[in-house]
C-alpha cells in the first residue's frame, strides 16, 4: 500500500467514487457514456470537496454470507412491519418498552454501522444511541413481551452482528471478535 498521502486517499475512496457514479446513473436512468462521465466528475468533486472520513474496509466479500444476510434481512423486515402493525392496530394493547445496551464484539465502525442499520429495520428494536469508541449499542425494544424478553432481544442483536461479520469480515477480524471460522 502506497504511503504517499494523495495516492493513499484515492485508493481508499475509489469505492465511494464508484458508488456515487452508480447513484448518478441510476437517477438519470439511461446507461450512456455522458451519464457515466458526468457521474464521475460529480463524484470526484464531491469526494474532494467534502472531507469525509474514509471507510477502512479490511474485510473480504463472502458470497454465501452475504446471501444469508440478505435473505434473513428481507424476511425480518417483512415480519417486523407486520408485528408493529399488529401492535398498532390491536385494540386496548399498550406496548411496554425497554432500553437495553448491547456490547458488540467487532472493533470497526463499518460493522457497527451496518449492525445498527439492520437492527433498526428488523422486528422489535431501534437503535437509540451508539458509542463508537466502546462499541456499545443502545436499542429501544418496542414490546418486551413480543420480543421474548430482554435477553432474547440482546441475543438477536448479537446474532445480527454475527451475520454481518460472516458476510463481510476477514478471518483476522472474525478471530478478534471471537467467532470461529465456520467450516
Amino acid at each position: 500500500m502506497s504511503l504517499h498521502p494523495r495516492r493513499h486517499r484515492w485508493r481508499t475512496q475509489w469505492a465511494t467514487i464508484v458508488w456515487l457514479t452508480v447513484v448518478w446513473v441510476f437517477l438519470w436512468g439511461d446507461l450512456t457514456i455522458g451519464n457515466i462521465l458526468a457521474g464521475l466528475v460529480i463524484a470526484l468533486a464531491v469526494t474532494t470537496g467534502l472531507r469525509m472520513a474514509p471507510i477502512d474496509f479490511h474485510g473480504r466479500f463472502r458470497p454465501l454470507g452475504v446471501l444469508r444476510l440478505v435473505v434473513r434481512f428481507a424476511a425480518d423486515l417483512i415480519r417486523a412491519s407486520f408485528e408493529v402493525s399488529v401492535i398498532a392496530l390491536r385494540p386496548r394493547y399498550v406496548p411496554r418498552g425497554a432500553v437495553i445496551g448491547v456490547q458488540l464484539r467487532s472493533h470497526s465502525d463499518l460493522y457497527l454501522t451496518l449492525t445498527a442499520e439492520l437492527a433498526s429495520l428488523v422486528p422489535g428494536s431501534l437503535v437509540v444511541e451508539a458509542h463508537r469508541l466502546t462499541g456499545m449499542l443502545y436499542l429501544h425494544v418496542l414490546d418486551v413481551q413480543q420480543s421474548g424478553g430482554i435477553e432474547a432481544a440482546r441475543q438477536a442483536v448479537l446474532d445480527q452482528e454475527e451475520r454481518v461479520m460472516r458476510a463481510f469480515a476477514s478471518d483476522e477480524e472474525l478471530d478478534a471478535a471471537g467467532l470461529g471460522v465456520r467450516a
Binding site: 417486523a80 412491519s81 408493529v84 402493525s85 401492535i87 431501534l126 429501544h140
Partner: peptide
C-alpha cells in the same frame, strides 16, 4: 402499512415507541 404507521404514531404511549411506528411499517 402506511395506514398502520399513522395509527401507530397516534396510539403509542411514548416518543421511542412512536419512532418504531415511523420506521418499520413506513419503510416496508
Amino acid at each position: 402499512l402506511a395506514f398502520a404507521a399513522g395509527v401507530g404514531v397516534l396510539r403509542f404511549p411514548d416518543l421511542l415507541a412512536r419512532m418504531h411506528a415511523g420506521t418499520k411499517p413506513q419503510v416496508l
